[in-house]
Amino acid sequence: HERALMVNRLQKLTRMLRVHPDPKWKQEQQELIKRLK
């Protein structure tokens, strides 16, 4: 369940980064990718 939330968050971040590349979001995205591996 928590994994699904993280995947959701990651997808949302990816969409937001396409619109507005924010370093903070980029960092969070990298963190999520690490944790999901």
Rank of each mutant, 00 (worst) to 15 (best):
residue 1 H to D: 13
residue 1 H to K: 11
residue 1 H to Q: 11
residue 2 E to W: 12
residue 2 E to C: 15
residue 2 E to D: 11
residue 3 R to N: 07
residue 3 R to M: 08
residue 3 R to E: 06
residue 3 R to S: 05
residue 4 A to E: 12
residue 4 A to H: 12
residue 4 A to I: 13
residue 5 L to T: 11
residue 6 M to F: 03
residue 6 M to T: 02
residue 7 V to N: 04
residue 7 V to K: 04
residue 7 V to D: 03
residue 7 V to R: 12
residue 7 V to I: 14
residue 7 V to M: 15
residue 7 V to S: 04
residue 9 R to E: 03
residue 9 R to Q: 06
residue 9 R to P: 01
residue 10 L to A: 01
residue 10 L to D: 00
residue 10 L to R: 00
residue 11 Q to H: 12
residue 11 Q to P: 02
residue 11 Q to M: 13
residue 11 Q to R: 15
residue 11 Q to E: 11
residue 12 K to G: 03
residue 12 K to L: 14
residue 13 L to M: 01
residue 13 L to P: 00
residue 14 T to W: 09
residue 14 T to P: 02
residue 14 T to E: 13
residue 15 R to M: 14
residue 16 M to Y: 05
residue 16 M to G: 03
residue 16 M to R: 04
residue 17 L to R: 01
residue 17 L to F: 02
residue 17 L to C: 03
residue 17 L to Y: 04
residue 17 L to G: 01
residue 17 L to A: 06
residue 17 L to M: 06
residue 18 R to K: 14
residue 18 R to C: 06
residue 18 R to F: 04
residue 18 R to M: 11
residue 19 V to I: 13
residue 19 V to A: 09
residue 19 V to L: 12
residue 19 V to W: 10
residue 19 V to K: 14
residue 20 H to D: 11
residue 21 P to W: 15
residue 21 P to K: 08
residue 21 P to C: 14
residue 21 P to H: 12
residue 21 P to Y: 15
residue 21 P to E: 09
residue 22 D to T: 11
residue 22 D to K: 09
residue 22 D to Y: 10
residue 23 P to I: 05
residue 23 P to T: 06
residue 23 P to D: 04
residue 24 K to R: 12
residue 24 K to C: 14
residue 24 K to E: 08
residue 24 K to A: 10
residue 24 K to H: 05
residue 25 W to P: 00
residue 25 W to S: 04
residue 25 W to M: 12
residue 25 W to T: 06
residue 25 W to Q: 05
residue 25 W to K: 05
residue 26 K to C: 04
residue 26 K to F: 09
residue 26 K to D: 02
residue 27 Q to H: 07
residue 27 Q to D: 08
residue 29 Q to R: 14
residue 29 Q to V: 14
residue 30 Q to A: 10
residue 30 Q to T: 10
residue 31 E to C: 15
residue 31 E to D: 10
residue 31 E to P: 00
residue 32 L to T: 00
residue 32 L to D: 01
residue 33 I to G: 02
residue 33 I to W: 08
residue 34 K to W: 07
residue 34 K to S: 08
residue 34 K to C: 15
residue 34 K to I: 09
residue 34 K to A: 12
residue 35 R to L: 15
residue 35 R to F: 12
residue 36 L to H: 01
residue 36 L to G: 01
residue 36 L to N: 03
residue 37 K to I: 09
